[in-house]
């Protein structure tokens, strides 16, 4: 969609929750629902903004709000880190982790942001045309094979203090 398109966040969320066409206006009860949905994702202040004017992180939270209305059994997040600043990303990951506590939901997240995601996930699977490693994050990132396959960038991450500290300790079987 065009960057400058006159579509507000309210319009976008409403289009997902009501059958009444958004071009005919959003009625009171739908507007209330929209605000409620957005507030669960720290996005209610964005309601009148144009979708094209949102930052990467803000758009992610709006899309997440829509994806969670109604809450699915499985949430698939494909490269949510793309175009999002570090602060926005941290907020996003915190929100997603929080969802697992409030809903009966499984979350599968595909990302290159290994350092950022490390502390939020139960299980990690590293893929490169096949499964290279899987298990608890500490196990996976401490695995020597990784540096061979993925190179120096991964070595940097695997040297982070909390990962080095956990190296050699068995991983949890958290799910």
């Amino acid at each position: 969609m065009e960057k400058g398109a006159p579509v507000s966040v309210a319009d976008l969320v409403a289009s997902a929750v009501t059958r009444r066409p958004v071009w005919a206006g959003i009625d009171g009860s739908t507007a209330g629902r929209v605000k409620e949905v957005l507030s669960l994702f720290s996005a209610e202040h964005l309601v009148k903004r144009k979708v094209g004017d949102l930052s990467g992180g803000e758009l992610q939270r709006v899309l997440l709000a829509i994806a969670m209305t109604p809450a699915p059994d499985l949430l698939l997040l494909d490269e949510p880190a793309g175009g999002v600043d570090a602060k926005g990303l941290a907020l996003f990951y915190r929100i997603v982790r929080g969802l697992r506590q409030t809903h009966d939901i499984s979350v599968v997240l595909v990302t290159h942001d290994l350092a950022g995601i490390y502390s939020y996930v139960d299980k990690m699977v590293l893929l490169n045309r096949g499964v290279i490693a899987e298990g608890a994050p500490q196990e996976v990132l401490a695995d020597g094979k990784l540096v061979e396959v993925f190179g120096a960038a991964l070595w940097n991450i695997s040297c982070l203090p909390d990962i080095v500290k956990d190296k050699g300790k068995g991983g949890d079987n958290a799910d």
Binding site: V7, L12, S15, A16, T18, A24, V51, P72
Partner: peptide
């Protein structure tokens, strides 16, 4: 009136629309 809402959502994010 019938087409607009799904069309709007598809325009902004087709994968999200598909999943719904």
């Amino acid at each position: 009136a019938l087409l607009y809402n799904p069309l709007l959502l598809s325009a902004v994010n087709p994968q999200l629309a598909d999943s719904r």
